[in-house]
Design a protein around this nucleic acid. Structure first.
Length: 117
RNA sequence: UAAAGUAAUCGAAUAAUCGCGCCCUUGUUAGGGUGAGGAAAGUCCGUGCAUUCAAGGACAAACAGCCGGAGAAACUUCCGGACGGCGUGAGCCGGUGGAUAGGACCACAGAAAUGCGAGCAAUCAAGAACUGCCGAUGGACGAAAGUCACAGGCGAUGGUGCAACGGUGAGGUAAGAGCUCACCAGCGGUAUUGAGAGAUACCGGCUAGGCAACCCCCUGUAGAAUGCAAGGUUAAAUUGAAGGCUAUAAAGGCUGUCCGCCAACUUCAGAAGAACCGCUAGAGAUUGGGAGUAAUCCCAAUACCAGACAGAUGAUUAUUUAGAAACAGAACACGGCUUAUGAGUUACUUUAUUUU
RNA sequence: GCGGGGGUAAUUCAGUGGUAGAAUGCCUCCUUGCCAAGGAGGAUGUCGCGAGUUCGAGCCUCGUCUCCCGCU
């Protein structure tokens, strides 16, 4: 789990990010990026979403979210996020195809998505 | 040895590195503690808790259903028993009040499906014989034997159907029928026995179809509705558009529906968008002892054991069981039910086979 | 988390406990030089699944799977 200052919190923030319509997709994971930062001191906030339509069982959905979150955390720790930190917010949405991925595959997907920004 | 039945248990472990929620300490970045389930699930029953309503009239409406007990806030819960069904058996299953309060339904077939019911009338054909059975009694014909679509008696046999108005056998009769008898089933009564459901025995009359997981009747129980997104406290803010503002309509409230009554605002869009309480010490957990066939109850000791709000248990590596561990994730709390669940382990019991 | 509604032919939907239907679509034939339209005929169903009640369930009862909607 990420520290609180990196988390995307409320619904209007999510909606504002979706409305920008800047998205890219790979391996069942879709990345949405928000507007560019106005102030360079604020942290980039990240949300992780797996819909109930993706899978019915909470355990599987939690597992996918944790894998995505852990991949992002390790990249953040290595300070290896390229220019993604220029955005105010990021949202990762997990789909059906991402359910069976293991950690190594997931980490490659997240890394590639971030590089595309 | 194999195949079964019942009950119980377990629900991976250890280490390293990088991380997260909450609490405490320190005092500004560290240390310590703690951190999902037996079903947390389905939301099928309940309960606590919270808010609202409980002016009037009319109509409608829930759940349970053998007996005794247990717990108790309550139940579609549990335990023990009765009865019925299934199984070779250990055992398992059961929504198990009433069909003589009344109504509805019982397709097709069948004379007939609960209606005291096999009908009545007419025509044609065939005829060696036959129109469901009989035709004792009466009638007709005949010398008689006998004959008859006769009057009349009967519902057995055959056949239909899931089901045919008790069943089987014997007597009885012209043929038959509980007409009579025996046994069985069912109904009513009496006696004995049991706490009771019930069981057993005897007697009586002589017959009552199924369906209440259709309406209904009986008995019993419960104020109703909405759910923590309930609800409360503090602080701040209150933008735009449309309708209405006279009337009508729509929508709102009176908490099942309608009538009737009341009130004045209603709808849509936008938002980088406060915090706290409710919130977890409990019909609780673990261990030990006692009572009871059991469900369960009583007593003592011990510790405090998730509390988030885009929502915490993860990732990687190594070792081990079994090279790769099932079903599955708390969201106000609790009791129960139902469903999902890998590899095993333990106890008791049954059946079959083999050996001694 | 809480509450509500559905599942019947390829599709959209009807369907009092008694032989499963309609429309569109599909196939064949007729009509036409050809196509469309029109006409005639035909095929197509685990009534989501599993039990129970009943003589007999699409329908009644219970369980289960799945889809959709509403409430912040």
């Amino acid at each position: 789990m990420l520290p609180k200052q990196y988390r995307l919190k409320n619904k209007s923030a999510f909606n504002a990010t979706y409305r920008v319509k800047n998205s890219t997709h790979l391996g069942g994971v879709t990345l949405f990026a928000g507007i560019l930062k106005k102030d360079a001191d604020t942290d980039t906030r990240v949300g992780f979403v797996v819909s109930k339509k993706t899978h019915k069982r909470a355990v599987k959905r939690n597992r996918l979210k944790r894998l995505m979150r852990e991949s992002y955390r390790l990249l953040l720790k290595e300070n290896n996020l390229y220019n993604s930190q220029n955005y105010m917010s990021l949202i990762f949405v997990g789909g059906d195809h991402a359910l069976d991925k293991n950690f190594a595959e997931m980490q490659n997907i997240i890394k590639t998505l971030i590089q595309r920004l």
